[in-house]
Design a protein around this nucleic acid. Structure first.
Lengths: 210, 210
DNA sequence: CCAAAAGTGTTATTGATACACCCATGC
DNA sequence: GCATGGGTGTATCAATAACACTTTTGG
């Protein structure tokens, strides 16, 4: 029994996923999604949080059980059933990568994945399609944004996840109509142009829209 | 590792689930959902189909992985992680129950459940809410109907699952507009009144509506 | 003063909802 | 001929989609 994680983030206008380069056989040298064995006294979710923290240093994140994969031959060594979770992290919340081991842990754009170990390609395809489906009918994007954000950043997030453009006025209207957002009162003058109002999600939890 | 099943059917205008009375400790005498240990060479889905056939004699049914439950103390004897599937069977497809053992296997209305073993109450609540959610945006009801059916039966199925009444004209309009249905050309004169056209689903597979 | 992102309303279209009567059959 | 479920259309309302210009700031 293992617990594996598909950890998504968005950076440089791309949806990315965290991969680990395998040092050992089988599939040595190929990339895989991070995971670990379930320990005796921990729940599945606790195991997912533990793996998450080991790999990213981050603990408080959006986490959701995705699917359990258990084909008899998915691991050539032995029968391994894996419960896969999917997680979202705002890029801004990630600690800077340490200079060591920089090569065995990396963020990869889901559109340009390297060759993957085990059935991890299938798992990633499934996770990506689920994320995209969720984006269309929920506030899921909050898991990818820092606490305070501009509406334009939120819109960009939805556009990247769903891979299509959205109308600015309709987007703002619909988002504000959900009542999930709140003005912070602060303006972000980091950009070189007109400062934008910063918003936050009143509740950082999953809600279906409309 | 076990595989457990929440098997739904609809009979007498009630949504029902198949339960097994436990003969042994722990929880002897309480009801539980059917399940079994995962065997070494079978996939999770194959295990679910096997359990399904052992308990109901039926093999070809709608089957979907629901969730994996793995709280450390969910089984007082040992650590057991269970992958739960949910299944739908048309009542008409069920073989008549044999007279033996009739008391240790039974269909229970989800609104009047007996006391349940393990965390099976939680599992059933989750399965029921998922089924209800799916009913509102998919053709899921095909799994509960025989191959040929009247539109009024289909409507009744949705009404029972979603626990609310639907408008007959709007329902027929929307259903026929999906293009998923086909007239059989046959009429069902089993009722005491005007015979109804029988329909079938062109494809017996899960589709999101609209 | 120019470039760049922020911000803001109205109209048209589409889909969803509400609603009532005639029809075909078995008894 | 009557009781019962089968079958049909339209009008209103709500939600969604299309669409362009002015404002504010930094450089």
């Amino acid at each position: 029994m293992t617990v594996d994680l598909v950890i998504f983030t968005v950076n440089l206008e791309q949806l990315k996923v965290l991969l680990v380069k395998r040092a050992e056989q089988p599939f040595a040298g190929l990339w895989s999604i991070p995971g670990g064995f379930l320990e005796s006294a921990e729940s599945l979710e606790d195991a997912a949080i533990r793996v998450m923290q080991e790999k990213t240093g981050v603990k408080e994140i959006y986490l959701e059980q995705l699917y359990t994969f258990g084909a008899p031959a998915r691991d050539p060594r032995a029968r391994v059933v894996t419960v896969v979770y999917f997680a979202l992290i705002p890029w801004q919340n990630l600690p800077q990568p340490t200079s060591k081991k920089i090569s065995d842990l990396g963020w990869h754009a889901v559109e340009q994945l390297p060759e993957l170990a085990f059935d991890h390609r299938e798992i990633l395809n499934y996770a990506t399609s689920r994320l995209r489906a969720k984006a269309s009918y929920s506030n899921i994007a909050y898991g990818l944004l820092p606490a305070h954000f501009r509406l334009s950043e939120l819109q960009k997030m939805y556009e990247i996840i769903s891979a299509r453009e959205l109308d600015k006025r309709n987007f703002r209207k619909r988002m504000l109509a959900t009542g999930l957002l709140e003005e912070t009162g602060q303006k972000d003058s980091a950009g070189a142009h007109r400062p934008a109002m910063l918003y936050l999600f009143k509740k950082r939890e999953f809600v279906l829209l409309d």
